[in-house]
């Protein structure tokens, strides 16, 4: 490849990255459009969530130890990113007819946006999780450094789901209903309120194959200093990414030619 073609590839790639960041910003702006607090909601909403958890588990139910609100908060933070991105990826294509109609618009960008929007909200709320962890006595430790890798893993797990949901929902609107139910189901199949040791032995396979179970526990390990889940479960998650991504991209590119017809 000539140097000129090389530099064109680089500038195209940079353009696509800027497109992703601009569209991410668009969604964040539009989400909080016409609200008084505006962008501050990205921080205010997890803080309020935390307040609710504290009142419910610490004051009313007196469940778990002093670390329990932090434990649940971190679980909710990770799963919240997953859930909100999965649900909004369903409309990623159908709410942007203006973009689909532009000849030069790269359609593969659209399902990435819900994942990056969720990532921004996740990252903004993350300091709160650390603050909470330090209050309940967590200490600095080397596993913390793995946090960016865990977040990256979560993004990689979510992308194939987002691609499939966005593509299928453009043609079959049932998908957004199904996704809502499935994310609710997985909310309970993921150790958010309970710990994986609470699960009956004959059902542990559910946790083993659920990538989000590995991910939320890995966050807890990184932030609270608890032990990392088994490496085998990490391999399951990587297998999901490795098999799911090419399938999802294949399905999306096949169906993307029908987006305009289905509008």
């Amino acid at each position: 490849m000539s140097r000129k073609a090389n530099s064109r590839t680089v500038s195209t790639l940079r353009n696509r990255l800027q497109l992703v960041s601009t569209l991410t910003l668009r969604d964040l702006k539009v989400n909080y459009d016409r609200s008084v607090l505006g962008f501050a909601w990205t921080l205010a909403s997890p803080m309020l969530q935390l307040g609710v958890l504290y009142v419910v588990f610490h004051i009313i139910l007196k469940l778990g130890g002093p670390k329990y609100p932090a434990y649940v908060f971190i679980g909710l933070l990770g799963y919240g990113w997953f859930q909100s991105s999965a649900v909004s990826s369903c409309v990623a294509v159908i709410r942007s007819p203006e973009l689909i109609l532009r000849p030069e618009f790269p359609r593969w960008v659209l399902p990435i946006i819900p994942v990056t929007v969720g990532a921004v909200q996740f990252l903004l709320a993350l300091p709160l999780a650390f603050l909470l962890a330090f209050i309940v006595g967590a200490e600095l430790h080397p596993i913390m450094l793995s946090l960016p890798l865990i977040a990256l893993l979560q993004a990689l797990v979510m992308l194939p789901i987002a691609f499939v949901a966005a593509a299928l929902n453009s043609h079959y609107r049932d998908v957004q209903q199904i996704i809502q139910v499935v994310t609710l189901l997985f909310f309970f199949l993921t150790p958010i309120f309970y710990s994986r040791s609470d699960i009956p032995a004959d059902l542990t396979w559910i946790i083993a194959i659920n990538p989000m179970a590995y991910i939320v526990d890995a966050y807890r390990a990184a932030i609270l200093g608890s032990t990392l889940p088994p490496v085998a479960h990490l391999l399951h998650a990587l297998l999901f990414v490795g098999v799911g991504t090419p399938l999802a991209v294949w399905l999306y590119s096949r169906l993307s030619y029908r987006f305009v017809e289905d509008m």
């Binding site: 668009r26 702006k29 539009v30 459009d33 942007s96 007819p97 203006e98 973009l99 109609l101 532009r102 000849p103 030069e104």
Partner: peptide
């Protein structure tokens, strides 16, 4: 570049 219809490629909320 195209100018296909009355949405004119614009995002109403931006």
């Amino acid at each position: 570049e195209a100018f296909f219809d009355f949405t004119a490629g614009l995002q109403p909320d931006l």
